[in-house]
Design a protein around this nucleic acid. Sequence first.
DNA 1: CTTTGGAAG
DNA 2: CTTCGAAAG
Lengths: 284, 284
Amino acid sequence: MPKREKKQDNGDSEKEADGPILYEDPPDKLTSSSGKEYTLKITSWNVDGLRAWVKKKGLEWVCEEDPDVLCLQETKCSEKQLPAEIRDMAAYPHKYWACSNDKEGYSGVALLSKSKPLSVTYGIGEEEHDKEGRVISAEFPSHFLVTAYVPNAGRGLVRLAYRQRWDVAFRAYLEGLAARKPLVLCGDLNVAHREIDLKNPKGNKKSAELLDAGFTDSFRHLYPDTPYAYTFWTYMMNSRAKNVGWRLDYFLLSHGLLEALCDSKIRSGAMGSDHCPITLLLAQ
Amino acid sequence: MPKREKKQDNGDSEKEADGPILYEDPPDKLTSSSGKEYTLKITSWNVDGLRAWVKKKGLEWVCEEDPDVLCLQETKCSEKQLPAEIRDMAAYPHKYWACSNDKEGYSGVALLSKSKPLSVTYGIGEEEHDKEGRVISAEFPSHFLVTAYVPNAGRGLVRLAYRQRWDVAFRAYLEGLAARKPLVLCGDLNVAHREIDLKNPKGNKKSAELLDAGFTDSFRHLYPDTPYAYTFWTYMMNSRAKNVGWRLDYFLLSHGLLEALCDSKIRSGAMGSDHCPITLLLAQ
DNA sequence: CTTTGGAAG
DNA sequence: CTTCGAAAG
């Protein structure tokens, strides 16, 4: 057998023989396992720059999706700089914005709601962690909703020590809230929960395990073995077209909310960022 | 007479009653005053970023114009970063590049020629002035061609003192060359020669008078009274559409070349920069 | 590769 | 307003 016909397969190949394996989000499940219809729809999206995302029609997708609450991460935008389209958006009368105190155009999250929360707080109560505009918490009658943009450990893990301090503090913060009311945490948690949650687990070990600490990853709870379901693809190397991605965006639920869970969706088709939106359907 | 019908005219109004007064470049004059046909065509263009200008099809306009020599200013591009389209352009086998030593993406000029110059030099022989890549000089059999991007005095004239040192040194440099051979100087001289050369002379006094120092402004020589002929319009306030501009780009000739002058053109229609190109036709 | 603010024009 | 590089992801 001539050498040229010998087939190589060392397990490292990036090529998919018959094209990339894409992920198709199945039809939404509109009822919980006990048969209750969903009454609350929450969408979370790391927009990677709110202003660019608005220009790329991100808000039009939101109008189609029409969630009750919209959580955004990496807005990179102070309140003064908000595009009028979202600043004045009538569908969400209750809007809350956080941004980095120091660095302009860095980090930042937002929470927009159709109904008025009982109360809203910013940060997690520790100065070191609250100056970058990474967390907004809203109390609703039956639950807390927390949206977070968890710090990236940085290229070469330059910020790993900070991330580890964050993880400890953030977990304590969430446990404090969850002791009072059921809790939904959503956002870019900047961690791939399990090996199945990223395309190349060998080269991409991420630390940090807030998950499995009293909260349930709603998507993985419903779809324990579904592979190729990612929410982030680097803009580099045409990764999104090849579906070489990571699942970094989550809805985590405190255990009491599991019976209300109808579906946890990954809207892979929505464009406008290097992340796609995710949507939670809850019956309560 | 009711007040509302009273016509205001305090001389400061920016509005043109019947729209802006545009400038139409007349047909090219192909012969000198003594009837000789032009044999040399030189185009000069401040491209305000070579890479953006190439994307905006600046090179396609150059191919149409087809000058013998092409001089570019504000290339903001190191040789390594040159787009292949211009780096490998076959029409100009002889290419010379200068860029800022310190600041990446700042200043920079280029000279591209169909015929090979006898020699080419960079700068004006003074360290203070030569580190920003502002001058290339090419010696041809019958003349020197110098292209220059003269330093802007800066917002609020923060760099006025430097500019004044430059003016002295640059004038001495040109006089040295002109003593040896006829000289053509082209480029963005960052000065409006006379009041007629900018739209709002009252608010825009520029200093610096290299002009009238042994060199002739070829355009003004041929068209002493033609107004509204500008080569630069700020991107702000829709200035180009309103033709609120300045004439900052020139072909200056040493006196011996005046008899060879056929035409000095302002190609106001060419887009791709906040400056338009200018073209010189010479019979020699 | 793409976002942002900042320097410069 | 638009260029570019830097920092960040």
